[in-house]
Design a protein around this nucleic acid. Structure first.
Lengths: 207, 207
DNA sequence: GCTATTTTCAAACGATTGTTTTAAACAGGC
DNA sequence: GCCTGTTTAAAACAATCGTTTGAAAATAGC
């Protein structure tokens, strides 16, 4: 067995199970059993259960947020230079489209997206903080640029609308891979289409 | 001690703790200690922990959804008779405004609203099902009437947008009583104002 | 081929969970 | 008064959790 193959198996299995059943409702025994590794391997490779969650979050969230941040900064710089007002949709897509790229790159990323949606509203503060600490910076960046796109709205108003938008996004992430909330909602709608509809919805609300 | 005073104390305490820390992260020992009653009282009065959650949900959710359903039905009947197209905002308010009434009626209802927001996206399927089973009917009613308000949009498109809207709503419920997600978001904004902004946001998105 | 390090394994640990048990205290009807 | 059914009390139950242990197995370096 290759070195640290066990580590990868644990991460991938845990990612899926955390996404489906939640962090605290997935026991290390369930993870290790499904991954086919020993129970103690988690504590050996990661230290503790919480550190495993951190590793999972970092694996996708760090590059994702870097990509978001880079795009937001690019628009901010360009706006600064030209003096024009950026479009709300343009700004929003800096945040959402990297998610789409993540999806196309890795087939298993669907579970990660569920996990992201869950983390934001997790009842446990520790889980929320782990996630928020990794995304707060980009959110502030997004808010700043949104305020430029909406120069006539006070910052607090924009912040509230962004707050609502984030709710719509995380909710969508959570329920995408599982049964939909409403009857008559086609679960098999391509993710691209869903994101387009979601973007539409949010842009109209933000404007 | 008055008959079943214990029962009420358990319900009120559990409602608060469930809302703040989540159902599974609140132990019966924490609840009973804070309520000042014996541990076994929960199982005696409710049977099991899950039944306690059901009792809490029922206490506010049943009358709330009845009020919502009545208002939706009233608009549906009136529309049926006059032949006019209802406004999106009019329909939406049938769903949201009863929540506001609940808030004004009971000071402790804030915790219940948090609990509602949490339940919808709870990682545990059992909790979600308990909640969804009590609200699914009203949601279908709401969707039906929304489709009448948006006769040019296919039902599935309306369903998706309602899906997004529900995400914004539950997210708002969760984070209202606790620290906000974004910096610069005033936590002390009156609930009425928040709901007005939220309604605005959703109506624009649905339309 | 030997040593040293890393990794796996089965077993147990201590803590916490929801629930049950058994007996005691209380209530109201007659 | 006493009796019947309801409610509370303290203790124990069985199960599960994350974590630790200590020895065996596998791997790497020389």
């Amino acid at each position: 067995m290759a070195r640290s193959d066990t580590k990868t198996k644990i991460i991938k299995t845990a990612e899926e199970l955390f996404a489906i059943a939640g962090f605290h409702h997935t026991s290390l025994r369930t993870i290790t059993a499904k991954a086919g590794v020993n129970l103690a391997a988690v504590n050996y490779h990661f230290g503790c259960k919480e550190a495993l969650l951190e590793a999972i979050l970092d694996r996708h969230l760090l590059p994702l947020n870097e990509s978001r941040s880079r795009r937001l900064q690019a628009v901010a710089d360009e706006v600064e230079g030209s003096g024009r007002t950026p479009a709300v949709e343009e700004v929003l897509r800096c945040f959402t489209e990297p998610t789409l790229a993540l999806l196309h790159g890795d087939h298993a990323a669907g579970y990660f997206r569920m996990l992201v949606g869950r983390s934001l509203s997790d009842p446990d503060q520790t889980v929320r903080q782990l996630f928020l600490g990794r995304i707060r910076g980009v959110l502030e960046q997004l808010l700043d640029l949104l305020c430029r796109a909406l120069p006539h709205s006070p910052r607090e108003s924009v912040a509230w609308r962004l707050h609502f938008a984030l709710g719509a996004m995380s909710h969508t992430l959570i329920f995408q891979e599982q049964g939909p909330l409403l009857g008559g909602l086609d679960k098999s709608t391509p993710h691209d289409e869903v994101i387009e509809m979601l973007t539409d919805f949010i842009v109209k609300g933000l404007d």
